[in-house]
């Protein structure tokens, strides 16, 4: 009994809890709307579609934990997407193209990190400016949508790996990197830098370094997202990521990451993005008129956020 209460208590303290609960609640609700919604084929295709947002949500969360914000990841994903298609179209082998896309994304993340951590720009405004630059770059690389992807990539993406859908690999790699980083002393420093950068600085934390890491890592996540979405769609579109930055921020906050920095973890954001993805699927598959769908998904999101906030307040962990 005591142990059970202890377990319950520690579950409530978990910042990811509201997002996990919301996700499973919606999954159950969805199974009433859609007959086959718990079938493997549905879950796999749903995961395939949600993976790009999950990748970006990981990056966004790490940046938010570090006390900043990044609204340019969607634009970065667009650049990665069109760059990959262009490289493949030019006959570059896909292994090299993948490496180049990841390098380009990390370079864009580095630019963000440099402007914000070293030049001390405001993160919201600076990433707004760089997101304009990146979406311009994407449009320059590919003004009209099109192109095609190496067959190996889409086959790999839609296939399975060790019994799990291979798409999961795309967000599991950044997730694993972050989990390892978090375990090192650097992880603690990154949290400290986000919680209170001045106190962290006087305690000897390299705040600038941690912030630059966060932005470069976010760039890497956007690159993984670009690989995922390109393998999934098999085409390039310079506007494909435009809406994703904001979605990822919502996912992070539902997932219990505090916008004031230094609190929360990436696990919650993954469930947050799964929740967001499921809203779209449920609303589309329900029989409501298309004109009501967007309103319905907006309201579900709003109430989900209210629930997550109320939960956070109750467990006394909210610092926003």
């Amino acid at each position: 009994m005591n142990r059970a209460r202890l377990l319950l208590g520690s579950l409530r303290k978990m910042s990811a809890m509201p997002a996990i609960l919301l996700f499973f609640a919606l999954l159950v609700a969805n199974s009433f709307i859609m007959a086959n919604s718990l079938s493997r084929s549905f879950l796999v295709s749903y995961l395939n579609n949600t993976t790009p947002v999950m990748c970006i949500a990981i990056g966004t969360s790490v940046v938010i934990i570090c006390g900043e914000i990044d609204i340019s990841l969607g634009a970065m994903l667009s650049v990665g997407n069109v760059l990959l298609i262009k490289l493949l179209g030019a006959g570059v082998p896909y292994q090299a193209a993948v490496v180049l896309v990841l390098a380009a994304s990390m370079a864009m993340g580095l630019l963000n990190g440099f402007l914000i951590a070293a030049m001390r720009g405001s993160s919201l405004l600076t990433t707004f400016a760089t997101s304009t630059i990146y979406s311009g770059l994407a449009l320059l690389i590919m003004p009209v949508p099109g192109g095609s992807v190496a067959r190996e990539m889409s086959r790999f993406y839609n296939g399975s790996l060790l019994g799990l859908p291979a798409a999961a690999l795309f967000f599991m790699i950044p997730y694993a990197i972050w989990k390892i980083y978090k375990r090192t002393t650097h992880g603690m420093r990154l949290y400290a830098a986000g919680y209170d950068r001045n106190k962290a600085y006087v305690s000897g934390v390299n705040v600038t370094g941690e912030k630059i890491f966060a932005f470069v890592f976010a760039g890497f996540c956007a690159g993984m997202g670009a690989l995922a979405i390109t393998s999934s769609l098999g085409a390039g579109d310079a506007l494909i990521g435009a809406a994703m930055s904001m979605m990822a921020i919502s996912a992070a906050v539902i997932g219990g990451v505090s916008l004031s920095g230094g609190y929360g973890d990436v696990t919650g954001s993954l469930f947050g993005s799964l929740f967001l993805g499921l809203i779209t699927v449920s609303v589309l598959s329900s029989n409501v008129s298309p004109f009501v769908q967007q309103l319905a998904s907006g309201l579900i999101l709003l109430f989900g956020m209210l629930g997550a906030m109320a939960f956070g307040m109750k467990s006394g962990k909210k610092r926003n």
Partner: peptide, 24 residues
């Protein structure tokens, strides 16, 4: 072209914002 316009706009915006608002 639209893409280049975005890039120039973004660069100028970054310059203006960085000169105007920098944290201490």
């Amino acid at each position: 072209p639209q893409g280049a316009r975005f890039v120039i706009q973004g660069v100028l915006l970054a310059v203006i914002l960085l000169t105007n608002t920098r944290s201490e």
